[in-house]
């Protein structure tokens, strides 16, 4: 895979990875972004701020691709990224896409569906981030999530981490 140009920033890499001009998800751009998140000192914090903004794009394709980038980072950028998505500072940006108090009435159904699927997947797969569970439960309590999605990308979290043998 070609490595990203050193002049690129997280922002320019994200713009490429989420461009509405991309015909399909461009995994080279997406992985370049993930690599940069892993390299930069404050990569997880900065990327979550950029992603929180990008996934609220009024352009459906851009928003959906931003959510795909978030998923890719959760898979590839480890615990420090998980800690960032596990903060309300980021989770609130997802909540805004669903709640009618914010962007919920304007968000495309496809975006809302993907956000709910992701939160559902994370609350099961990232139990060490309790705020994700709290947010998901509140969405259900408020009736914004009627039932758990049937979709779950099992490739994310194939099984719970094995217990250490010497526990």
């Amino acid at each position: 895979m070609a490595s990203a140009d050193e002049n690129e920033t997280l922002e320019t890499l994200l713009n490429k990875a989420t461009s509405p001009m991309n015909r399909d998800e461009d995994w080279e751009y997406i992985m370049n972004f993930c690599d940069r998140v892993n390299i930069e000192l404050e990569g997880p914090e900065i990327s979550c701020r950029l992603l929180g903004h990008k996934m609220q794009s009024p352009q459906e394709r851009e928003a959906l691709q931003a959510l795909t980038v978030v998923e890719a980072c959760v898979k590839n950028c480890g615990e420090s990224f998980h800690r960032q998505v596990g903060k309300f500072r980021f989770l609130n940006e997802m909540i805004k896409l669903i709640s009618p108090k914010y962007l919920g009435t304007k968000s495309p159904e496809s975006v809302k569906k993907k956000v709910i699927e992701m939160l559902y997947s994370w609350q099961a797969g990232l139990p060490q981030e309790p705020k994700i569970i709290e947010a998901y439960q509140m969405l259900k309590k408020q009736g914004l999530v009627k039932e758990d999605p049937v979709y779950m990308d099992k490739a994310y979290f194939p099984s719970p981490a094995p217990r250490p043998k010497n526990a």
Partner: peptide, 16 residues
């Protein structure tokens, strides 16, 4: 408070 503690204290879920 340290930065992390302060950030944690200010990290709240939005009312829906």
């Amino acid at each position: 408070l340290g930065f992390d503690e302060e950030e944690e204290r200010d990290d709240h879920m939005l009312p829906m």
